[in-house]
Each structure stands twice: as structure tokens, then as C-alpha cells.
């Protein structure tokens, strides 16, 4: 983690959407900062609000039905209130994004070269097409695409999935962004290719001091590459800490549940995984108080009030969580057998 001014400062970001069924609170008061050169992982399941949050930073969730509040400051620009024109200048230049599915994220009807050149030239009209093409070749070579010059003329369907994701990364890097948002960048890829792409991101971090927000549901990927982790549940941040804090001293029962739910390739896991019972709540009707309360075996009366996201362990001032339990209690409760997990009082399913 590098010191100095944060790259991006998000403060109480709220996003909700008006639908026919009511107001969907997708992001419910999220705050965090990210420094240059840092990899911040945002972990959560579907409906946790992690993708909506990222899209909001890019101004891509704006629309007649969206209500967006809070602040997100990138350098001198406040992204939530920025004009569409300002956002267009920022998108793809200061903040770039890599998406989950490289199969569908590139326009099938244009050659790869044209799609990269388009991004370079939309941000700097003074670059000629030839210069932009030359830069595209450099970028493709940098992300490990062989015969880059020739591949410029290929269409997306002529690439494999891994190669397409490399193209997406090359495109994202084309304007040397200060912040790269990678939304499940390896989920659709084969494991050997996933390892290559993660390596690519690691190299990128070493070579530039761009901050990376990595959105994922895969804790193994997080353990592989992140510096800090945010765990989101039903629109809220439930825990926020360094990589080691989160894996070895998790404070929120939901984090315990996630850690208990994953199988490991390097060791036997108990036959019955200490899974989290039930399902995440509908964002139309979130439960009162702590959103995790109905699925939490450790819930008690106080959980009807929303716990603040704050540092609760005296030895870790930067480790924040939203759980009313005492730190000592937590350290006892989270142990299930010989691992961290969510103890289940009864099998509650569906």
C-alpha cells in the first residue's frame, strides 16, 4: 500500500432504482478509498451491489429510474455530480473497465484494431490513425498477444476467450488510466488462462501506479492478488480490511460463511461444508437492522439496529466491520471444526 493522497475516495455512495415493484436499493451507503498502485478487491455474491457500485463510478448507471447520492472523488472531479460530458472524458481515460465476459464485450462487427484505435482517438483527436494503430500494436504485445500487428486485423470471433480478455485489458490500458476496474475479469476463463490474466494484472500493477478495483466472487482470486478487501452484502459493506485481516481474523459472520463455503484444492475439506443457510434478501425488501440477520445463527436482539461500519478490534484500527458481536465472542464463534465457518444452528434452507 502506498502512502499519500488517495486516488479515489468514495463517501456514502447510494444507488437505487425505481422499478414497478418498488425501490431497489442496490448500493446502500458504501465508503472506501483506494491509493495508487493498490489492488482493492470487492467481494460479494450476486445482488450484493458490487457491480452496480463500480458501474456508478463510471457514470454508467445513470438513467431516468436511477437515484444516485453520495460522493466519489477522483482527483479534482466528483464523479456522482459530474456532467455527462465530463464523464465521457473520464471514462476510458482516467478510469477504465474490464468486464466479465470477453466473448460479448467486444463488438463482433469491427476489427480489434479499430476498436482499440477508437478508444485512443476518442480521447485525443490529435493522434492520427496510424499513430493510434502503432500504439494498439504496442498494447497488444504488452498484454502478451503474439503477432500483434497481424492480429490488429482480426475480428473478435477469431480470438480465443483468453486472448479476447487480453484485448479488453489492452484496450483498457490504451489511455494509461489511473484507475482500472476489473469486474469478474477471469470468471469466464479456463483456469490456466485465469492464471495468465491474473499474472497480467500483477505485472500491470508493478509497471504503473494505477489503482485496481477487482470485483469478484472468488475468494481464491482475491487471496492471489488483492492488498485490501471489501466484503459487500445486500448493498452494504459488511467488512473491510487488509488481505490477511480478512482471511485470518474475519469479523463478520457473513465473511465466515463465505470462507466456510469454499472448497480448497490443496486440502481435504470436511464432508459437509459449513454453508450459509438461506438466500440473500430481495433488495426490494431488505430486512430491518443488519441485512444478514435472518441468515445469521449468531443474531441477537441488538441486530435489529443497523451496526455502523467501524473498527472494533483494538489491535487493528483499519479493520472495519458491521457486526454487534464482541471481538472476543467472534473469535470463538467463527471456529467450526478446525476451520473458519458459520456454525449452523439448524439446517435452514431455501
Amino acid at each position: 500500500m502506498s502512502a499519500g493522497a488517495p486516488l479515489l475516495e468514495v463517501d456514502d455512495l447510494r444507488v437505487s432504482f425505481a422499478t414497478e415493484d418498488g425501490l431497489v436499493r442496490a448500493v446502500d451507503g458504501v465508503s472506501f478509498t483506494i491509493s495508487p498502485g493498490e489492488v482493492l478487491a470487492i467481494v460479494g455474491e450476486s445482488g450484493s451491489g458490487k457491480s452496480v457500485m463500480a458501474m456508478t463510478l463510471m457514470g454508467l448507471t445513470r438513467g431516468p429510474n436511477a437515484r444516485i447520492a453520495g460522493r466519489a472523488t477522483l482527483g479534482a472531479v466528483e464523479l456522482v455530480s459530474a456532467s455527462e460530458r465530463d464523464l465521457q472524458r473520464i471514462r476510458g481515460a482516467s478510469i477504465a473497465m474490464v468486464f466479465q465476459d470477453p466473448m460479448s464485450s467486444l463488438n463482433p462487427v469491427y476489427r480489434i484494431g479499430r476498436q482499440i484505435v477508437e478508444q485512443i482517438r476518442v480521447h485525443d483527436r490529435s493522434v492520427s490513425k496510424q499513430e493510434a494503430s502503432a500504439r494498439a500494436v504496442e498494447l497488444l504485445a504488452r498484454v502478451g498477444i503474439p503477432h500483434a500487428e497481424r492480429r490488429l486485423q482480426s475480428y473478435p470471433h477469431e480470438f480465443s476467450g483468453g486472448m479476447r480478455q487480453r484485448v479488453m485489458i489492452a484496450m483498457a490500458l490504451s489511455c494509461s488510466p489511473r484507475l482500472l476496474i476489473a469486474d469478474e475479469p477471469t470468471t469466464a476463463l479456463d483456469v490456466t488462462v485465469q492464471a495468465q490474466i491474473l499474472e497480467e494484472l500483477r505485472v500491470l500493477r508493478q509497471q504503473s501506479d494505477a489503482g485496481i478495483i477487482l470485483i469478484t466472487h472468488d475468494l481464491a482470486v482475491v487471496a492471489d492478488i488483492a492488498d485490501r478487501v471489501i466484503v459487500m452484502y445486500a448493498g452494504r459493506v459488511v467488512e473491510h480490511g487488509t488481505l490477511d485481516e480478512l482471511f485470518y481474523d474475519p469479523q463478520h459472520p457473513y465473511t465466515w460463511g463465505l470462507l466456510g463455503s469454499i472448497t480448497r484444492v490443496d486440502r481435504d475439506t470436511s464432508t459437509m461444508l459449513p454453508a450459509i443457510p438461506g438466500m440473500p434478501p430481495s433488495l426490494l425488501r431488505t430486512p430491518q437492522g443488519c441485512h444478514f440477520r435472518p441468515r445469521c445463527p449468531h443474531a441477537f436482539a441488538k441486530c435489529m439496529d443497523v451496526p455502523e461500519l467501524s473498527a472494533r478490534a483494538p489491535d487493528a484500527p483499519g479493520h472495519l466491520d458491521r457486526c454487534w458481536l464482541e471481538v472476543e465472542q467472534k473469535r470463538k464463534l467463527r471456529v467450526v471444526g478446525d476451520q473458519i465457518g458459520l456454525a449452523s444452528s439448524e439446517p435452514v434452507i431455501s
Binding site: 463510471m58 454508467l60 455527462e84 465521457q88 472524458r89 473520464i90 471514462r91 476510458g92 481515460a93 477504465a96 473497465m97 468486464f99 465476459d101 460479448s104 464485450s105 467486444l106 463488438n107 463482433p108 477508437e118 478508444q119 476518442v122 480521447h123 479488453m168 484496450m171
Partner: peptide, 22 residues
């Protein structure tokens, strides 16, 4: 709603460019 349209917007194209080109 296609992903590549989202990509086009994320690249910084204007609404008009996204509409016409993509």
C-alpha cells in the same frame, strides 16, 4: 443491452457515437 455497448460507453464514446457506430 449487449455487453459490447456497455464497453463502448465505458470507452468514453458519446451517446451519439455509441448509437451510430455500435
Amino acid at each position: 443491452n449487449e455487453d459490447f455497448v456497455r464497453t463502448a460507453r465505458a470507452k468514453g464514446l458519446s451517446q451519439r457515437q455509441v448509437l451510430l457506430r455500435h
